[in-house]
């Protein structure tokens, strides 16, 4: 059984590097402007909650440890 937990991103820590989005085998994470900094950076957003199978790859890939599986 796949882990039912889903990634939750701490945008205070996230650097908008896109590594998690490129690493997700199902491409569930989209990069989109979140208006949380003055730079208009695009941050990862879990678009399709049900598509994510909780594999934790994004969590492991994030260099900032900004992702928690909840």
């Amino acid at each position: 059984m796949a882990n039912p937990k889903k990634p939750v991103i701490d945008y205070e820590i996230c650097m908008a590097c896109g590594i998690c989005a490129a690493d997700c085998p199902l491409s569930c994470l989209a990069l989109r402007k979140k208006n949380i900094d003055s730079y208009q950076n695009a941050y990862p957003v879990l678009d399709d909650y049900y598509l994510c199978n909780g594999c934790t790859r994004c969590e492991k890939a994030c260099p900032m440890q900004a992702i928690r599986m909840v």
Partner: peptide
């Protein structure tokens, strides 16, 4: 510019 553009693994984001 509507949003920044980062190449993969980039934390500067010079694109848009």
């Amino acid at each position: 510019e509507t949003q920044k553009y980062h190449c993969y693994s980039c934390i500067i984001g010079c694109g848009g």
